[in-house]
Design a protein around this nucleic acid. Structure first.
Lengths: 189, 189
DNA sequence: GAACTAAGTCAACGAGCGACTACTTATCCG
DNA sequence: CGGATAAGTAGTCGCTCGTTGACTTAGTTC
């Protein structure tokens, strides 16, 4: 909707590249790599299909770059957010409160049947949770406990944002956050 | 590997149908619906591609039936297993201890960018957790708490079985189960 | 305003896809 | 044994895919 400007844009390489990336992100989350054609992406971006190859070289490189976008936020959060606030902030982010792109995390996870997407997601999760959150914890199994927090957030994001099971979909975010806080209390210390 | 018998099978409609379903299940978990062709399925099953249409009518119907397989076990578990044992049993099932098909749950979840798969998964999860587990709980938010348990199991299955983050992949199952039990204690009562 | 370059367009290719049909072969019943 | 019927095969249709290269147009520089 907002990625396809009504052709008002003048010749602008950077803007065209960005429009392709945004369109790729949206369609990647909705239909995965194999389920999205370069023609679909170009159409949503309001751009000629051949420009995918001018700016990215291949479909795979376009999606690899698109997948990386939006997971950057987790990095700064796991590094800086006070442990007591972290579960709620991760949850808000995963549930995309007011984000421009709907449910990027759940979209990426359901796109993880593609090798390249899988690699991007793994790398980002390990960086945020193993390398930044785990060292802030104390006690045994620090990396495992950090990844278990990631798993909880991921599971909720997927069931609510993608699968759409009824209780998680209709529950308000505060109710979910209450339980997540109690779960996280058994993992973060 | 084991779904493609070395052509020893005699003419047997039921066995051919079953071989197609098993092959479809494996490839669905690995590459999703759009990432798998009917020719791929037939080749893995050791069977002619046209038989997909003889026995299932369409690619979509084949995958719909294949997706349903293997989620049946959750049904009986959420109905009958003592609450104290349930988390461990769900986890074992999700992590596929000695199962013939690797990680079916995580495979199905990552195939959930397809509408039809999404519907099958949602229906199965709601049946097992909302309709069978939730009524066995007491207190507020019974369905939400039941679905949160599903989310935890799902998240772990996806990160360990599909994304492959390092701590969850290398941790032994007992260590994970210990934390899952403590998490579940905040949800099941 | 002409020359140059960057941005965007167009049409086509080979390959693979889902789907279908007409044909051949094995198996079983009388 | 011999025909009927179910099981399996081979080939093909129309279409979409990713990718490419030759082309046109817009914007900038002298």
């Amino acid at each position: 909707m907002d990625t396809a400007e009504p052709r008002a844009r003048r010749r602008d390489a950077a803007a065209t590249r960005e429009a392709l990336l945004n369109a790729a992100r949206t369609l990647l989350s909705e239909h995965g790599v194999e389920g999205t054609s370069t023609r679909d992406v170009a159409a949503l971006a309001g751009v000629n299909q051949a420009l995918v190859y001018r700016y990215f070289g291949s479909k795979e490189k376009l999606f690899a770059e698109a997948a990386g976008r939006g997971l950057d936020a987790a990095d700064t959060m796991t590094a800086d957010t006070p442990l007591a606030d972290l579960p709620r902030e991760l949850l808000d982010r995963a549930l995309d409160v007011g984000a421009e792109h709907p449910s990027h995390l759940s979209g990426l996870v359901t796109a993880a049947n593609d090798d390249m997407i899988r690699a991007v997601v793994r790398e980002r999760i390990e960086r945020a949770f193993d390398e930044q959150l785990a060292p802030r914890l104390s006690g045994a199994d620090r990396e495992l406990r950090a990844e278990l927090l990631a798993a909880v957030i991921t599971g909720i994001a997927v069931l609510r944002g993608k699968v759409g099971t009824r209780a998680l979909t209709t529950a308000d975010r505060d109710a979910i956050a209450g339980y997540v806080d109690r779960i996280a209390a058994t993992l973060l210390h």
